[in-house]
Write a protein that binds this DNA or RNA. Structure first.
Length: 109
RNA sequence: UGAGCGGACUGCGCGGUCGCGGCGCGAGAGAUCGCGAUGAGGAAAGUCCGGGCAUCGCAGGGCAGGACGCCUGAUAACGUCAGGUGGAGGCGACUCCAAGGAAAGUGCAACAGAAAUAGACCGCCCGCCGAAUCCCUAUUCCGAUAGGGCGCCCACGGGGAGACCUGCGGCGGCGAGCAAGGAUGGAAAGGCGAGGUAAGAGCUCACCGACGGGACGGUAACGCCCCGUGCCAUGUAAACCCCGUCCGAUGCAAGUUUGGGACUUCUUCAUAUAGGGUUGCCCGCCCGAAGAAGUCCGUGAAUAACGCUUGAGCCUGUCGGCGACGGCAGGCGUAGAUAAAUGACCGCGCUCGACAGAACCCGGCUUACAGGUCCGCUCAUAUC
RNA sequence: GCGGGAAUAGCUCAGUGGUAGAGCGUCACCUUGCCAAGGUGAAUGUCGCGGGUUCGAGUCUCGUUUCCCGCU
């Protein structure tokens, strides 16, 4: 089971307005229940130039896709924290921590 | 060997597992799945120029505005490039230069300096008048000049409260001549030397510079030579400006197509010297505009498809050209996303990997960039 | 992606190519028993940064950095 991308501005606003927020050390997650699993990352200009922003987005997508199989259907926004350096292992660990705390993991394999 | 100059290229590699965006093939009613090949740069950046392309305007005209500026060529075009000219820098290889016009006109040139785009303040020299006008020696064209001494009564300068001391034989006024000298300044009416003169002056002469004319070389910018003119007009045009060349506006969020458009009614604004559109303005040209409700249809709306990648394309060879570049022949098929694709993990290697991510497409410019490779050349030193 | 604008004292802003200014703030003094208000005086600048033009640049010009605004 793969995830879909969250594209529409309406959906973005809806999630940001009505969604539930959860925080870990390196990032924040905003989510609300929906029919299918949808995900988006938020990386604005404040994170640096385009190479740096692309790097952050790739790391977040890669980290998220590890758990995509097992998450209950909902709309998810990943918002990283501004930092000096970013790493896959820290993102992966923090996403897992949040998913477990918020009971978003459906069937543990 | 050291220091340096110019040009070209490269800018992590190999293997495995799991993933991402187009594309092709296959399966499936469809969602989707499988396989295969492919997938960021030299600057993709800044958006500083030039084009293509698209829409609007096209009887169009004028004004304004903008850009550029040695010459010749290259090019679709350019503010780019190539080759040359002139100037500046460097021992040199070589590098840099927005490099037309200041006798078309206007403006500006602070401070300093006597004076700033033109004059005569000081000064030099001659004549006259006034004060004063010592002595010795030499020369003498009998005006004086040079050297030495004496002296501060008179004049000028300096010092001192003053008496006075001291430099000097020295001054002041008027008139005429001159523009050589005068601590300034970025710039002071060609420079330097000689002659000349009462003192001076391109007043005269040589050389250099400037200007004008001519011959020769060069497509030209320009170079070089000869002759002439004593020479007169500072700088600034990246101040206004003049001359020459060029420019319609807006930018793919341009724009095209489909899907909601048609009809009826009402309201609001404007109603012709008005308003809107057309290029910033004027003339000219064209035209009413916006909203709401009802009926039919449809429902995804900053959306979908097209534009969207075969193009002034890239590579190789050859020919023409000093070169930029162009001609011919052969070969190649090389990202097209749209909340937006290259990542994660593991292993090995080394010098431990810089600047940095396509968004309509090209040609340039500019800026950023760890390191590495190659070619050509210069200077210094040593040896042969 | 495309187009436009700004940067001057701690803050808000002026500024004709010729010595960088105003207001608020800061500091010192006067005034007051003390504070505020008032008065007098003073300090404060890489004119964002780097080249060029000019005798001379905050101003003209080229590049660069940062920030702001508009366009669906």
């Amino acid at each position: 089971m793969r995830y879909f991308r969250l594209k529409k501005r309406k959906e973005f606003s809806a999630v940001l307005k009505q969604g539930r927020r959860a925080y870990a050390g390196s990032l924040a997650i905003v989510y609300m229940p929906s029919e299918t699993l949808k995900m988006a990352v938020c990386v604005g200009k404040k994170y640096g130039k385009s190479v740096r922003r692309n790097r952050i987005k790739r790391l977040l997508r890669a980290a998220f896709s590890q758990y995509a199989e097992s998450i209950v259907p909902c709309s998810v926004l990943l918002i990283p924290r501004v930092a000096e350096t970013y790493s896959f292992s820290v993102f992966s660990k923090d996403i897992r921590k949040i998913l477990e705390r918020e009971h978003l993991i459906a069937h543990q394999s």
